[in-house]
Computed example of a mutant assay.
Amino acid sequence: MADTSPLIEVASLREQVERAIASRIVAGEVEPGDVLTVPTMASEFGVSATPVREAMLDLARRGFLAPMRNRGFRVTEVSLDELRQLREVRRLLEVPPMRELAGRVPEEAAARLTDLAAEIVRAGDEGRFQDYLEADTTFHLTLLGLTGNRYLVDVVRELRQQTRLTGLAELAETGALTESALEHAELVRLLVDGRGDAAADLMSRHIGHVGGIWSGEHED
């Protein structure tokens, strides 16, 4: 059997670089209009050009970057209309299961979700935005996984990968990031207590932060 470990290593590097660049964009460390080049990023991350180029092409497919001929990749603007549409689709998918799961969260799963909720708060407070995003995604997908519907989990994972947020660093300074992060622990408490309607309402408000506090736009 052929040795595929080099391919696995490249894929792993590509994923790591992609997450790192995406978290910088989300955190506001690089702004719309900034140009990122493969050689510069490869030198900064201490890796070859191949995983960096592949990572940036993936981010271009997700809408975070736009290729520029012979110049690199430009950080794209956020579309508030797209964020609103993604927000509404996520509400349709993620809010109803909260009523289904209320009072049915196993103790072990509740403990896991509570730990993730605490890590989301810590990472936000400490400015570890890549860790914040990864813990946040793991929390939501773990929670939906309790429904036993893998298609639901896969669809929401894809939607979250398309969701473009910006300015986490600024939100952290104002306290809005912590406020949003604390909602995860409250959601777990509501579900454990069997309060399905309250959990659904909280999830709806929480998803409303996408295109809301994230972008400076507030819902009525």
Rank of each mutant, 00 (worst) to 15 (best):
R84G: 15
R84A: 08
Q85N: 07
L86A: 10
L86T: 06
R87L: 01
R87T: 12
E88D: 08
V89C: 05
V89K: 13
R90H: 09
R90G: 10
R91E: 11
L92I: 04
L92S: 14
L92T: 07
L92K: 04
L92W: 13
L93Q: 00
L93V: 00
L93M: 06
E94T: 08
V95W: 03
V95Y: 02
V95E: 05
P96K: 00
P96D: 00
P97N: 04
P97V: 05
M98C: 00
E100Q: 02
E100A: 02
L101T: 02
A102K: 08
R104T: 01
R104Q: 06
V105A: 09
P106V: 03
P106W: 01
P106K: 06
P106E: 04
E107P: 00
E107L: 01
E107T: 03
E107V: 01
E108V: 06
A110H: 01
A111S: 05
R112Y: 01
L113N: 06
L113M: 00
T114H: 08
L116W: 04
A117P: 09
A118Q: 07
E119L: 14
E119N: 14
E119A: 13
E119Y: 07
V121Q: 11
V121R: 15
R122C: 07
A123K: 10
A123V: 05
G124Y: 10
G124W: 13
G124P: 13
D125E: 15
D125P: 02
E126G: 10
G127R: 13
G127C: 11
R128M: 14
R128W: 08
F129W: 14
F129P: 06
F129S: 13
D131K: 12
D131M: 08
D131Q: 11
Y132L: 13
Y132S: 11
A135E: 10
A135C: 12
D136P: 15
T137M: 12
T137V: 11
F139P: 14
F139N: 12
H140Y: 12
T142N: 06
T142W: 05
L143C: 09
L143W: 07
L144P: 10
L144I: 12
L144Q: 09
L144A: 09
G145K: 09
G145W: 08
L146K: 05
L146P: 04
G148C: 04
N149H: 11
N149T: 02
Y151F: 12
Y151T: 11
V153W: 08
V153P: 13
V153K: 09
D154K: 03
D154M: 07
D154G: 04
V156F: 12
V156C: 08
R157Q: 14
R157M: 05
R157I: 01
E158R: 13
Q161C: 08
T163L: 06
T163Y: 03
R164E: 02
R164L: 09
R164K: 15
L165Q: 06
L165W: 03
L165A: 10
L165R: 13
L165T: 14
T166W: 08
T166Q: 12
G167M: 07
L168E: 07
L168M: 07
A169V: 09
E170D: 10
E170T: 12
E170K: 15
A172K: 05
E173I: 07
E173R: 15
E173M: 00
E173A: 14
